[in-house]
Nucleic acid binder design. Sequence first.
DNA 1: TAGATTTAGACAATATTTGACAAGAACTAA
DNA 2: TTAGTTCTTGTCAAATATTGTCTAAATCTA
Lengths: 95, 95
Amino acid sequence: MILSELLKSKRETKNLLLREVASMIDADTALISKIEKGDRKPTREQIDKLAIALDIEHSKLLKLWLSEKVYEDVKGEDLAIEAVKLTLKRLKTEK
Amino acid sequence: MILSELLKSKRETKNLLLREVASMIDADTALISKIEKGDRKPTREQIDKLAIALDIEHSKLLKLWLSEKVYEDVKGEDLAIEAVKLTLKRLKTEK
DNA sequence: TAGATTTAGACAATATTTGACAAGAACTAA
DNA sequence: TTAGTTCTTGTCAAATATTGTCTAAATCTA
């Protein structure tokens, strides 16, 4: 499940309106709509607030958010998988 | 080997001066210096030119470049490895 | 249809990245 | 040491990219 999908589905199971979520995280309704459609990436601060507002485990949301950034960097590249694997190696040896 | 290191070592084995590489890829000497120090990320076009100028396999350089972008996104994060793994999964299923 | 919610587009505001220049540091050779 | 060359660093403007806001249109629901 992708970030935007999770946000939308969580909001719906909690029966919240866009404007309600918007006010909780202090943002424009249109912006929340865009985030749920994947047109806008939330900032890290918005992720923090969304986790609270929608009652989602923070680390889960953060992981999806980071993963999305990574995905955007490499998507469409022939070398995408190899490049990500290489990063993984680097992270593991540095850990 | 990280991108910047590779660029520098290749230039040195080929006995090229910074300004020579700079002129080959049509850039300021200072910029090449920064790239070799890791202070600046080359653009994709610069990667293409650098591969030619320094006689490095293009896909190798590109992979390092992509990997570096990914690394920058997640470095320092507790969830770095998990997030990258998640992206890898996504890429594999979409392949 | 009326009223509410959601979405889309255009554009302003911000943030980030990049390139260029100049001055300083480091190195080399005489 | 000095002069000449190479490399590095800092700063700032320019270019790009991202994010937020507003308005109006589309969609949904009763």
